[in-house]
Design a protein around this nucleic acid. Sequence first.
DNA 1: TCTTTCTAACTGACCAGTCAGTTATTACTC
DNA 2: GAGTAATAACTGACTGGTCAGTTAGAAAGA
Lengths: 208, 208
Amino acid sequence: MLPPGEPKFRRRPADRPAEILSAALEVFAERGFQAARLEEVAKRAGVSKGALYLYFETKADLFRAVVTDAVSPNLENVKALASSPVPFEQAVRMGVGMLARKVVTDRRITGVVKLVIAESRNHPELATIWHETVVEPGITLLSGLIAAAQARGEIRPGDPRLYAFGLMGPMVLSMVWRETFEPIGAKPLDVPALAEQHLDTVLKGMRP
Amino acid sequence: MLPPGEPKFRRRPADRPAEILSAALEVFAERGFQAARLEEVAKRAGVSKGALYLYFETKADLFRAVVTDAVSPNLENVKALASSPVPFEQAVRMGVGMLARKVVTDRRITGVVKLVIAESRNHPELATIWHETVVEPGITLLSGLIAAAQARGEIRPGDPRLYAFGLMGPMVLSMVWRETFEPIGAKPLDVPALAEQHLDTVLKGMRP
DNA sequence: TCTTTCTAACTGACCAGTCAGTTATTACTC
DNA sequence: GAGTAATAACTGACTGGTCAGTTAGAAAGA
């Protein structure tokens, strides 16, 4: 009955949490928190449902781990950008360009962002984590750069924070587009091209 | 036991569907489709759970009705804008301004938009409806105006569709901000101010 | 051997959907 | 216009399926 060459299951406690998190991210991103089935997560991770409970206490606990785990790479990006001493326009182009090429096109990230939006009422602590670690530092960094450039006379007057929202908006729209409308057959969106054209337009519009 | 002055229930079949849809919109927007409880919808609509089934066949049917019902006012806005023969810049300012003042600040609409994003995998037909009736017509209208203005030499070369995304992006970001981050105590966003500054910047940047 | 990791069958709470019975409203009668 | 039958609107207790979380014991390793 059982092919004896293939072990019925492998014991790899060191790899399990990451494998489970990866499978859980897929299922949560596809279904949302409530509709996601732990049996499905276990299947994709190659374990039984019971094994999940060796590593995570509850479904909500696993969900929190998935979302908080996905914060860190973005946090790295913000930090890296903050510590690179380049002129204003170059820094903004680097930041938005990175968003377009690395973040918006990465389903694992857009999926989590969608989850944070969708479940912000049921799991506000996750929205708080993303806000405090990624969103607010990112906006603060960007609007700081803008304010400094304004002080040097390189940019027109105007609320730096609103300028930051104006720059980032189309990247958020791109995430929504890829998650919501491309799967149902909408015209695909060329995100790097959008980023480039938008940067050209807005940076020109921001000049005195 | 029962205060005889207050009738145990009122019969108002004509008003019921609208009352149920209104209550359902609230609950679905707060909890999402799966986590929403029909008992809670019934309670807020002032009826029993059984009464819901006199007007809607299933929970999914009620959900579809909520989301499709919320399309129509937006559809009206797009149509009204399409048929007003005003010059390019004025039309764009009217459109984005209307979004900022009427759409982004209306919880009933931002709530439904959030639902469409969140449930697009489980209920793709709703994403399709919104895409076909509101999103694609809106983008087509806007990029058509831009292309015409380019033909008259009023606007620099560039993909009109990407210009449209660049204009609308911050309004989508605003919806996300209000739905996701303001409830957890993030700095409130002055959406009309954002719309105005962004329009000033982008329209300036789009000029030849 | 004993411990750790894992499975598979199980349990119990929850909730969408049902339905037998109740109440309000309308229609009809005298 | 008072009484009464017929109908439409509504209630709330109930049911059956689903699924998060549990557990007894098997498999792997030391």
